[in-house]
Write a protein that binds this DNA or RNA. Structure first.
Lengths: 130, 130
DNA sequence: GAGTGGTAGTATCCATTAGATACTGGAAAA
DNA sequence: TTTTCCAGTATCTAATGGATACTACCACTC
């Protein structure tokens, strides 16, 4: 390893990986595939408001990164199954903790948003001096 | 709580929260602020290739969500410090595990990409039949 | 036997978004 | 005196995301 990973350097590969992970559709797909194998249109129905194009694109990227496996069965019409690879499984666990965080703290976040939108200081009227 | 959180429903608030979290700039900012308080231009220098506009926008969203705190000091020129709130700190820990995942598995991901780009099956030449 | 719906996508176009660039205004450094 | 820094905003353009239509084949309904 030539230099230690630095995701804040735009050229560093870990940055590219983080950018991929930090993608809303990728996150949702990983979470969904964590517990079951799903087909293209099943994924589409589950992830509301995703377009076919984005689903197709995101699946392709995830496959390229070795995170998911695509298997096509020569049925009529063709059947395509998507599942996590071992690598993908390790990431899915991590990513799922984001979902858990969101579900746990959604109330606090929404309260903060209301406070902010009501037009004032988020916590205290603090504009300290130096 | 009227219904259980479902991030796959486009209307569910947890989905909106996940979308916010699943944002590459937000992820990087949270990781950076986990261990220190930083000012606007310091953040900009650290996060390579972020534009002022996106930094400004992302900071505003994170502040609105109650994840970071913005403090302005009436110096000349004005000094603005950004730090995590308690809520933000809980998220930063989770998000940082993404960075750790990326740094740990970057080699495997890059190998998978090379294999994929070399034009063939990612793992085995498997096109099973049914 | 015509129409509808399902399979897994691709192609195209347009709206939204991200990014590049220039600008603010006052002070300090070169 | 020109440049630099602070923390942004404003504007314009390039890239991206999303809506829609289409493929080709088959099953099912009417």
């Amino acid at each position: 390893m030539l230099q230690r990973p630095d995701p804040f350097n735009a050229q560093c590969p870990t940055r590219r990986v983080l950018d991929r992970i930090g993608d809303k559709w990728a996150v949702l797909i990983l979470i969904l595939l964590e517990h079951e194998t799903l087909r293209f249109n099943e994924l589409r129905r589950r992830i509301q408001a995703i377009s076919q194009k984005m689903l197709s694109q995101t699946l392709k990227s995830l496959e390229r990164d070795g995170l998911i496996r695509r298997e096509a069965f020569p049925t009529v019409p063709v059947t395509v199954e998507y599942s996590l690879t071992e690598l993908g499984r390790t990431l899915a666990v991590t990513v799922d903790s984001l979902r858990i965080w969101a579900e746990t703290h959604i109330g606090t976040v929404e309260a903060a948003q209301r406070r902010y939108d009501r037009g004032a200081e988020p916590d205290l009227a603090e504009t300290a001096s130096r």
